[in-house]
Amino acid sequence: MSAADIASCIAFDGYRRIAAGSLADVALATKHAVDAGVDGPVLVFDDLNGRPLELDLRGTPDDVLARLPASASDDEPAPRGPGRPKLGVIAREVTLLPRHWDWLASQPGGASATLRRLVEEARRSHRERDAARLAGEAVDRFMSAMTGNLPGYEEASRAFWRKERERFMHVTDAWPADVREHVRQLAMRAWQATLAD
């Protein structure tokens, strides 16, 4: 399954919402809007993390869909060739103090297996806290990109992080409707994730 089928995102023409939903649907709606001559700027955001998405809208709708990024967790296995199977292991640098390396070396399975086990344990035990943090960062990124120049941005940001819901709603009332509604949705999701933490 590709990111086009599972990602939730939203596209804006300036402060006006073009489309929201799966990446494929939003990409096609954005292409149609750009081809129709929107005023712009056109920005697309990933709802999960609030990061802007770069879409190549050149060519036909099929061309646009073919260039969408694939998910890192594809359900369909890649065709196998000869040799060892690819396990998805990525080698990167880790910097630790000597006492950490000594401790890792004394663990069964070696340093890599121990680090993987520790990461998996931390992912399980901190799932709610990580979800709350990521939801808050999504609000912050989206607000910075879309409302950073609007009146009350800094006050709204402070109200969001302090969980002052009434103040946040009041300050964002004057913002353009589509942006206001989306940032409020993101904020509610973040506050709910914090309650679950």
Rank of each mutant, 00 (worst) to 15 (best):
R129A: 11
S112W: 04
L104E: 04
F142P: 00
S125R: 11
L134I: 06
R141C: 10
R141F: 07
L104M: 11
W101A: 14
T95I: 12
S106H: 12
A111T: 05
H126E: 12
R99T: 14
Q107M: 15
A132D: 00
W101E: 14
D130F: 05
P98N: 07
L118I: 11
V94S: 03
G110T: 11
W103F: 15
A105D: 15
A135R: 00
S106I: 09
R124I: 06
T114S: 08
A111C: 11
R117K: 14
A131G: 05
A113S: 13
R141Y: 06
L97N: 05
A105H: 14
E128C: 10
G110P: 07
D140G: 06
R99I: 13
A131F: 01
R133E: 07
W101L: 15
S106T: 14
A122W: 05
L115F: 07
A111K: 07
M143E: 07
A138D: 01
R127N: 03
R127F: 08
W103S: 13
S112H: 04
H100S: 14
W103G: 10
A122N: 06
R99N: 14
R129I: 06
S112N: 13
T114Q: 06
E137A: 13
L97E: 08
E120T: 04
A113G: 07
A132L: 06
L118K: 04
G110M: 12
D140H: 14
A138E: 02
A111H: 03
L104C: 06
H100V: 12
L118R: 09
F142K: 01
R133L: 10
W103K: 14
R117W: 06
G109A: 07
W103V: 14
G136R: 02
D102T: 15
S112T: 10
H100D: 11
T95M: 11
T95E: 05
G110Y: 10
V139L: 07
L96W: 10
L134P: 00
R116S: 03
E120I: 08
R124T: 02
A132I: 02
A132Y: 00
V119T: 13
R117D: 07
A138G: 02
E120D: 09
T114R: 04
D130C: 02
L134V: 08
R129P: 01
P108C: 12
G109V: 07
A138C: 11
S112D: 13
R123E: 11
R129V: 10
G110R: 05
L134S: 00
D140W: 08
H126P: 03
T114G: 01
V94F: 15
D102F: 06
S112P: 00
L104I: 12
E121L: 08
E120S: 06
L115K: 04
V94G: 08
E128R: 09
L96K: 01
E121G: 09
G136V: 02
T114P: 00
S112M: 09
A138W: 02
E121N: 09
A122Y: 05
P98A: 11
R99G: 12
H126Y: 10
L115S: 01
S125W: 01
E121A: 10
P108S: 14
A111Q: 11
P108Y: 08
R124P: 01
A111E: 08
T114F: 09
R117P: 03
L96M: 12
A135W: 01
R129C: 01
E128Q: 15
L97W: 12
R133P: 01
A105M: 13
S125N: 08
